[in-house]
Design a protein around this nucleic acid. Structure first.
Length: 624
RNA sequence: CGGGGAGUGGCGCAGCGGUAGCGCACCUGCUUUGGGGGCAGGAGGCCGGGGGUUCGAAUCCCCCCUCCCCGACCA
């Protein structure tokens, strides 16, 4: 039993306001006099946080002038320099107060959108019994990726890399009727994966903050609805975080048939290639991407095919240059093996054959492009001089472009040192199958809208899966339907790498001076820089700055206040490095004229506002 | 795991057999005050760990640990 005073305190805490309102730095602020005295005011940009003014003189963060030696990506480099995070071990980071604020802002956005989508937040254990993983059969599948540990009785546990097993097992014990479904449960919690190689700072960490959600439905229709809701919520979340992203339909892995989308944030340091349209919402893995076939202007008459001597030119570029034609006018003939036979894949000379696409075209047969060893074993295939009408080819697959563009082509003559001109489909060679074979490249046309496609690297910030009944069956998550029959629940799972999102935002929103946060994610809405100098005006400058901070707080603005005894250069450099969206400079010059200078971090735009009009200043800061 | 490299003050680095140094940061004082300013003084280091070689090891040899980078996984 709790003692009376303690239980009273707890009741007070529980009844005073929603639990999440306990977040924020108020207590810290008061205890250490690091901030201003203030009322209970919510952040206008983030209602889950209290607004307050943080004095930089008290802030636990030191900015670094030099880049950390191990910084290879801008996100980690700038977050470390700015005092947001510190590396503690390989792939493991401490989040200092500034970083923690960003983490909370991102988490709160996720929370709001998940709640709005009808999901319920909860907390699952990070330490999970291995036994659950053995039951689902994933103990072996995850293998060395899991951090493993034993208790004193030598019972096996792991640190949660994800939580399908735990949640499924939990739900199976709690819910048993169709009346209980559907339900969507989520948590925002630390996850652990003993990555082969942690790298890129927060982008591939061994400890990372993840929002993981799990939906349970009675049937596939319900799953599809839950999936759609999550998909839409994810779109809103990433939009609010200021990311340029696309939802990419991912290749269904070995689980086969499961629908899943990856949310990719466009970034040069991303680890996956994907194709996306800058005009519509088309997006796909490079392996899965297709393009609209370019229109061809056909010559009315194609002269008779003729052989030309092309000595020592086993490549598109060499031949095109020698004959004075564009590479796109050449037909590339790539030899492959399918079921022990030789086949040819035809694509224009400036394209590459997408091996996955070729495989899909010939499925279910398996396809393998020939390597140097194969050419050595097939002397009848003169690499670099193969033509589309090669007698050994049992099957010829051509890119769809050839449908509208039968020729004339410059291509191989099936004889070393010889090519042909004016090869025409239907006259000089034939094709068995047309398929989208070419690897899509930047500049190709979108298959949906025809606009230009881009191929970019992306950071996977989210992933939504239609799981089906796999885990429900393995872990006995069954429900009873109207007629009393038992069925496995139909599940979906939905992940967002919250800490990775922050790294992705930092990758997208920075310049040579430092970070430039979108306001939704910024640890503070505004950075007030006081420049008192040493002259007589100093005291009035400080007074003006402090009044401004107090007024902004009153207006619901999160303020980072640089009250340090440092030179202007240091303060400006730190303000740019830390990257609050708006900087307010209170200096002797401006105060004398009754104005504060406003600098927008992202654009560099500078304006002035009257010091005695805090509402106008607050409105500018809040972008209103 | 394979291949490459590095561990020296909080951070970034030099030193590579003979008294442990530099820049940034930190402390004191003076000076300066609109883009990381200047002068003077100061504090801070089992030179990753263990074992050798040597009169003497940060430095040479062996073992171990950690970390980083390049290739196979994923939020």
């Amino acid at each position: 039993m709790l003692g009376a005073p303690l239980s009273r305190i707890i009741r007070k805490i529980l009844t005073a306001r929603p639990v999440k309102c306990q977040r924020g730095g108020r207590k810290f602020c008061r205890a250490f006099q690091s901030g201003f005295p203030h009322g209970k005011r919510r952040s206008s940009s983030n209602p889950g946080l209290y607004v307050w003014v943080m004095r930089m003189s008290r802030l636990f963060a030191r900015t670094l002038r030099d880049d950390p030696a191990d910084a290879e990506v801008d996100s980690y480099r700038l977050l470390a320099r700015g005092g947001y995070i510190r590396r503690v071990a390989s792939g493991i980071y401490a989040w200092l107060p500034l970083g923690d604020r960003v983490l909370r802002k991102a988490s709160e956005i996720v929370r709001e959108e998940m709640d709005a989508a009808g999901a319920q937040e909860m907390v699952l254990p990070i330490i999970q019994p291995l036994e659950l993983w053995q039951r689902s059969g994933r103990d072996g599948a995850y293998g060395p990726l899991m951090f493993r540990l034993e208790d004193r009785k030598e019972t096996g546990f792991c640190l949660s890399p994800t939580a399908e097993e735990v949640i499924t097992s939990l739900v199976s014990g709690e819910l048993s009727s169709y009346r209980d479904l559907p339900v969507n449960l989520y948590q925002i919690n630390w996850k652990y994966r003993d990555e082969l190689r942690p790298r890129f700072g927060l982008l591939r960490a061994r400890e990372f903050l993840m929002k993981d959600a799990y939906s349970f439905d009675t049937d596939v229709d319900g799953l599809r609805l839950a999936y759609k809701q999550m998909y839409d919520a994810y779109t809103r979340i990433f939009e609010r975080c200021g990311l340029t992203f696309r939802a990419v339909e991912a290749q269904s892995g070995e689980i086969g048939g499961d629908i899943n989308h990856e949310f990719m944030a466009v970034a040069a340091v991303g680890e996956d290639d994907f194709v996306w349209c800058r005009n519509c919402d088309y997006a796909a893995n490079v392996e899965a991407a297709t393009r609209a076939a370019p229109a061809a202007d056909l010559p009315s008459v194609v002269p008779v095919m003729e052989e030309v001597h092309t000595p020592d030119m086993p490549g598109i570029a060499l031949v095109a240059n020698f004959l004075g034609v564009e590479p796109s006018a050449m037909l590339k003939c790539i030899a492959f093996e399918v079921d022990g036979q030789i086949g040819l894949a035809l694509v224009p000379g400036d394209d590459e054959v997408n091996e996955y696409a070729l495989g899909r075209a010939l499925a279910p047969r398996s396809v393998r492009l020939l390597g140097d060893d194969d050419f050595a074993a097939h002397p009848e295939l003169p690499k670099g001089y193969i033509g589309p009408n090669h007698p050994s080819a049992s099957v010829v697959v051509a890119d769809e472009v050839l449908v509208t563009r039968p020729g004339p082509w410059v291509t191989g003559a099936n004889r070393v040192d010889h090519h042909v001109r004016n090869a025409l489909l239907g006259r000089d060679f034939n094709v068995d199958t047309f398929a989208p074979l070419a690897t899509v490249t930047t500049g190709d046309a979108c298959p949906r809208c025809g606009a230009e496609l881009s191929v970019d690297r992306g950071i996977e910030v989210g992933h939504v899966f239609q799981l089906g009944t796999k885990y429900a069956e393995a872990l006995g998550a069954l429900y009873t339907d109207e007629s009393g029959e038992q069925h496995p629940m139909v599940m979906g799972c939905y992940g967002i790498g919250v800490s990775r999102v922050i790294a992705a935002v930092a990758e997208e929103h920075h310049d040579e001076h430092g970070l430039a946060w979108p306001r939704a994610i910024a640890p503070f809405d505004v950075h007030v820089v006081a420049l008192p100098g040493r002259g007589d005006a100093g005291a009035s400058v400080v007074a003006a700055a402090e009044q401004l901070c107090a007024a902004l707080e009153e207006a619901g603005v999160d303020v980072l206040y640089d009250d340090r005894d440092a030179s202007p250069g240091v303060k400006f450099a730190d303000a740019d490095l830390l990257g609050m969206p708006v900087q307010l400079v209170v200096g002797a010059k401006g105060v004398g004229r009754g104005v504060v200078e406003v600098k927008h971090r992202k654009t560099g735009e500078r304006t002035e506002l009257p010091l005695d009009d805090p509402p106008a200043i607050a409105a500018t800061v809040l972008g209103r």
